[in-house]
């Protein structure tokens, strides 16, 4: 397909999806909201874990922190500025935290990401307990169609960002880090800088997603905001779809959210089990994901393993 044609199609799709907000019912908007949320999350995950190879199993930490920052400044600043601020704050903090964290490589990083998310969650829990708060309701949040549109915007930005990074000089550097960090440094890739940047970029959008999400759920509870389920879903969606390029997570998310829609309300456990089995199967048998598999099969492109 020609690039210009692709672009036109993408724009038409986005305009259509945005237009839907005007007349669709709550149910459709709700599904759309969830799909966009996970697209934004999975695309962000891909920037760090898919391209750079630093697999994060604790990406919910950005989501939860964004939500927490947002709830702390709720009412003090205009809503959308608050969302923006939570993204910026989390991005800045991750630039600081990322420095020591990203020195930890390979499998150590993976388990570190896991533990770090739990550490932050417990710190927030303690902090909340000290202030004698167990949950914080969000009153007067914008209407669903507004949240829907905002989430759509984040999904578009996240997808565009991943798409662009994957094809940029920056992305080439990240992918070389994934393949062999020391060899990358040898040919001049400033690995520490690029990793840190990827880490922060990978955190900003999930933080804003977290902020918007609690407006939808109407409540902030630290246990829920930092639930490992979000990390798990993000990882699974990206891997099932294919984590080396932007179309991958897109495919994974649409597939899984529809499954979730069928199962989540009545059988959440069954949904999680199916998710687990899918992740097992894809890692073992289709490690390049749906997109990698499709492009290898039909376009003869060689894609790579995460």
């Amino acid at each position: 397909m020609k690039n210009s044609l692709k672009l036109v199609l993408a724009v038409v799709l986005c305009v259509f999806l945005a237009g839907v907000a005007g007349f669709a019912d709550e149910y459709i908007l709700g599904i759309g909201f969830t799909i966009f949320m996970y697209i934004a999350l999975a695309q962000s995950w891909v920037v760090l874990s898919g391209l750079t190879g630093y697999i994060s199993l604790g990406h919910v930490v950005f989501f939860g922190s964004g939500a927490y920052v947002f709830i702390l400044i709720w009412g003090l600043v205009p809503v959308w500025l608050g969302v923006f601020c939570s993204g910026i704050v989390v991005g800045l903090v991750s630039l600081i935290v990322g420095y020591p964290v990203l020195r930890v490589r390979g499998p150590y990083f993976v388990i570190l990401s896991f533990g770090l998310a739990e550490l932050v969650k417990n710190l927030v829990l303690i902090n909340e307990a000290r202030m004698y708060v167990s949950m914080r309701p969000v009153f007067g949040a914008p209407a669903l169609y507004q949240l829907y549109t905002a989430m759509l915007l984040l999904a578009i930005i996240a997808t565009g960002l991943t798409y662009w990074i994957r094809r940029s000089r920056f992305g080439a550097g990240l992918r070389s880090i994934r393949e062999d960090e020391e060899a990358a440094e040898t040919i001049g890739v400033p690995v520490a800088k690029l990793k840190l940047l990827a880490f922060a970029i990978s955190g900003v959008i999930p933080a804003m997603v977290g902020a918007i999400f609690i407006m939808r759920s109407g409540i902030f509870q630290s246990g829920d905001a930092f639930t490992p389920i979000v990390s798990f879903t993000m990882v699974t969606m990206a891997i099932i779809g294919g984590s080396d390029d932007a179309p991958g997570p897109f495919l994974g998310v649409v597939f899984l959210v529809l499954l979730q829609e069928l199962l989540w309300v009545n059988w959440p456990e069954v949904y999680m089990i199916i998710l687990g089995i899918l992740l097992l199967g894809f890692v073992l048998f289709i490690p390049n994901g749906i997109y990698g598999w499709l492009s290898e099969k039909y376009f003869g492109n060689k894609k790579n393993v995460t």
Binding site: R169, A172, E179, D180, T186, G188, K302
Partner: peptide
């Protein structure tokens, strides 16, 4: 040898051209 095994041969070399001393900006 330390090739970037998961990238194409061309991508391997391009990464060097994008960074290193040349720092060619455009892909």
């Amino acid at each position: 040898v330390r090739p970037f095994r998961g990238l194409s041969v061309l991508e391997n070399v391009t990464t060097g051209a994008l960074y290193g001393a040349h720092k060619i900006r455009s892909i």
